[in-house]
Amino acid sequence: MSDITIDGETVAATAGDNLGALLHRLGDARLRATLSGAPRGLFCGMGTCFDCVVLVDGKPARACLTAIRPGMVVERQGGQP
């Protein structure tokens, strides 16, 4: 197991696993909120729709295309511009 940080909290994860799938399990399918505050989750699951965008080490990334790396810092969007 490798620890990663999600919204400031340490979470045990497995390196190489898919970040989108982990966030789907942890968040009861909720991954982020939009600018208007609406909740969103995984939608296309294959890099097409960008609904699963999170910040990974400060840079925007689609969670569904991201493999977990030890020490990764993940921030979910809460609706702020």
Partner: peptide, 11 residues
């Protein structure tokens, strides 16, 4: 747009 609604491909 609700979380939990996704494509068959995603599932």
């Amino acid at each position: 747009t609700l979380p939990g609604v996704m494509t068959p491909g995603a599932g």
